[in-house]
Write a protein that binds this DNA or RNA. Structure first.
Lengths: 330, 330
DNA sequence: AGTCAAAATGACAGCGCTGTCAATATTTGA
DNA sequence: TCAAATATTGACAGCGCTGTCATTTTGACT
């Protein structure tokens, strides 16, 4: 089966190769009738473009890399799914890579070997200062999902962390809780700070004494939630609800509370933040806040492709809606 | 910064482009001193090969696709990691794709658009008869991880399911359990059948009455483990241990048992099979059987690359060792 | 030294496409 | 109506590499 090339199309349509190329690449300055004729011929010949040739001639790779340093495979796979979705129609490949520290060195080695047209960075890698500076210097297009720092240096997908945390806290308050503990993530993580902010706003709005609502910090791992409950919260019997800044820590709290024989949610309500797979894998199922990770990834990847195509930089952040998934733990 | 090409190397080394190409591609029939000189010059010029050009000229894509239909992101990410590992040194890309049903149609559409040199299929996709036939017909090199059917049609990575299940069962028996229930996976899944086999072998070897040890079937999901315990096992007080054919179902059992107020492991021992991330995320941590998924993927990918490079087909299965991770639930 | 096969090397076309720039067609405006 | 401006199209080189096949070198054996 002979490969069909644009020169075959050109011959059959009675135009030049370049015109065929223009049509296929949606370039401007082609008459409508020409476009239609070429498209029809291409279709009749069952033409499939050759990426390598395109890539060689145009010096683009048609590869988008997704880099992460997140051991949460569920989160990563949702990001990847969205990125794929965006790339499929544009004819781009996505390769997903778990980057190892030191990030910018690994990145540098990677980019020496493979050529990529753009990068999708997901949190917390999206906040690695060295890596960001490196990418900026090398002038490699990148976008970020839920970065916590340096807003404005790239296009990014966000959720309203503060607002969402406030709504979640309000839910707890409405249920009558007055002693609510919050477990936040790493202190340098802006998203976590924003969630604390929303938590405290809700408390203030309801006239609840912040001193009754201690804040602890974990590291976003299941273990840190488990340990925080065990070491710090278990003995404080007046605390009737715990809000963890992500699902993994919330699950850790659930597990630790279960171990202490606590009745969930009657004696202790627990809520998380993420809408992760894990949140409904466990029993009791976790009440959490759903983030549309896959949609965020798709949109941000689309904007990356747009930037690559047009060369125009538009760093307007994309904000996404979240909603509470109310389940067993409150 | 001008791109360094093989013709630059050729000029500086005083040889022809073709000789440089031979050296760079490890082709035979190059004198040792020539090889060394070329390599030295390439290094001094900091030469980086151009994939597109190579690909265009050689009609290879240097892309390996990993296809799966597994919603278990943890498992998939471990496979991907291994595949990456194998491809990195060979200069291949890996793209990972969740294939949607009907598989062979999606596959066909995918291969019409993208060109790939080979495929890594992970279970249960590795057992889709239509897809396999399609790949065989199109003569696309592929390898499989833990296939349950049609051994011999491709190179594959295996573990000794029966032997491993036997060892795990023996552990339970040695701890004094005489009423052990087994939850298997989908009946057409050979790995699951082999695990049942091993379970029953151990029972027989210990002279335990199989009728005291009922077998139920789930679908490898957390929910099916949860439901099986709740609907079928909970009321059988004599059952003192449950062996689930994978971690997800075992976790479901743990969760359901927790919900029933059962004391684990004193009143009920539970063991899984996989060594998944999930197994140690929950409390109590699950005793499980570790499978070296990532290593399996790496080895099998290596053999795929070998087949692509040499054209030689060697479908000798690769068998891997497993070991029991003993934790809280038994 | 001479012969011949095998090993090593090189010349060169061309993979399929796009960028550049020149050529031609069409529209605009006076 | 005609020149100038603009839109559309085409010719062709060449992206960096490998496959093919011809040529040269080497080594083994008379």
């Amino acid at each position: 089966m002979k490969t069909v090339t644009i020169s075959d199309i050109a011959a059959k349509a009675g135009v030049s190769m370049k015109t065929v190329s223009r049509v296929l690449n949606r370039e401007p300055n082609v008459r409508e009738e020409m476009r239609e004729k070429v498209l029809a011929v291409a279709d009749s010949l069952n033409y499939k473009p050759n990426f390598s040739a395109r890539s060689l001639a145009s010096k683009k790779s048609f590869v988008i890399a997704h880099w992460h340093n997140n051991s949460n495979a569920d989160y990563t796979s949702r990001v990847l799914e969205g990125a794929h979705q965006a790339c499929r129609s544009a004819g781009y490949f996505v390769v997903s890579e778990q980057l190892s520290a030191p990030y910018y060195e690994t990145a540098s080695a990677y980019l020496d070997t493979y050529s990529v047209d753009g990068l999708v960075l997901s949190a917390p890698l999206a906040d690695d200062a060295d890596l960001l500076q490196f990418l900026l210097e090398r002038n490699i297009p990148f976008v970020r999902i839920s970065p916590g720092t340096q807003p404005g240096i790239s296009c990014a997908a966000y959720i309203d962390n503060s607002g969402a945390a406030k709504r979640m806290t309000q839910l707890l308050i409405d249920a009558g809780h007055k002693h609510i503990s919050f477990i936040c993530g790493p202190p340098n993580h802006m998203a976590s700070q924003q969630r604390i902010q929303g938590f405290q706003n809700a408390l203030k709005g309801a006239g609840i004494n912040c001193e009754d609502c201690p804040i602890y910090s974990g590291d976003f791992s299941v273990k840190s939630g488990f340990d925080t409950y065990t070491n710090a919260i278990a003995k404080q019997k007046q605390i009737s609800a715990i809000f963890a800044a992500n699902d993994a820590m919330a699950v850790g709290v659930v597990m630790a509370a279960l171990k202490h024989g606590v009745n969930i949610p009657d004696d202790l309500a627990i809520v998380g933040f993420d809408g992760s797979q894990l949140s409904h894998t466990i029993w009791p199922q976790l009440t959490t806040l759903y983030q549309p990770v896959s949609e965020m990834a798709e949109a941000i990847t689309q904007s990356l492709l747009e930037r690559i195509r047009t060369g125009k930089i538009d760093n307007t952040p994309l904000e996404f809606e979240t909603y509470i998934l109310r389940r067993d733990t409150m």
